[in-house]
């Protein structure tokens, strides 16, 4: 149970880290209207290096979609992946990011 908690905490902090790093790097293109959403599928290598970032659900606005890809590329590599428990690392080598502008920094 303690192990499960630790694993959950480590995974949680990895998710937060990814979210913060990507949000930090995301420059929303001017003129991108409200209500746009894009989903980017991210695949990482064993050490958290970026293998691929691809749009799986486009927003219909090319500039917006590219800004999402660029944010992932600028935020990578996610070296912290290696701090996850070994059995969790594999599961976090692939995840989706849903880009929806809420607040503007």
């Amino acid at each position: 149970m303690a192990n499960a908690n630790q694993a959950s905490e480590a995974a949680n902090s990895f998710i937060n880290l990814v979210r913060r790093a990507v949000e930090q790097a995301w420059v929303i293109p001017p003129g991108a209207g409200n209500g746009l959403t894009a989903i980017v599928q991210v695949r990482l290598g064993p050490s958290g290096e970026l293998f691929a970032a691809t749009i799986t659900q486009g927003s219909g606005d090319n500039a917006f979609d590219r800004s999402a890809i660029q944010a992932v590329e600028a935020a990578a590599p996610f070296n912290e992946l290696r701090q996850l428990p070994a059995n969790a690392q594999r599961s976090f080598r692939e995840f989706n990011l849903r880009f929806t502008p809420g607040d503007i920094r």
């Binding site: 979210r19 995301w26 995840f95 990011l97 849903r98 880009f99």
Partner: peptide, 9 residues
Amino acid sequence: LTIEITRGS
């Protein structure tokens, strides 16, 4: 797993 990105510059 889907992480929500809602903040940007």
